[in-house]
Amino acid sequence: MNKLLCLAVALVASLTVSAQQLPDVKVENEAGKMISTSSLVGKPMIISYWSLACKPCIQELNAMNDALEEWREEADFEIVAVSVDDVRLKARAKAKATSMGWDFVCLFDANQAMKRAMNVSLTPQSFVVDAEGNIVFSHSGYTPGSEQLLFEKLLETIKK
């Protein structure tokens, strides 16, 4: 048994894999249309998962929205806010996103296909994705101020 586990671990360790990429999943946009996540690739982006019941998620998105004008002076990028609220809360999530004036690309992942494909267990979780669609950084949880770390990682991606 132990030998088998060791073998499994060794095999995982020996994987010669390239960087994780943004998975191609169908997800609903603000207009209610299903789009492919591959259509987002082309610009660096911060992808941030949220739900109405997740207070720190909304804090993080608000903090990024507040800083957006300053950040955009330094870099051309998008913020993609992915709501994982189920179908009952989807309309309310859309209403919240619109009323908050979030200058983001808002996606609605009601049955969590995108969340599952990106292996997200808990929200908040945010990803920094480069212009080629490679995921270069990810962060779980939110503490006020940690949005700055995401932006720094995004800038590193652009400078490379």
Partner: peptide
């Protein structure tokens, strides 16, 4: 680009 693996 080859494949990639994720573990959660």
């Amino acid at each position: 680009k080859g494949g990639y693996m994720t573990i959660g």
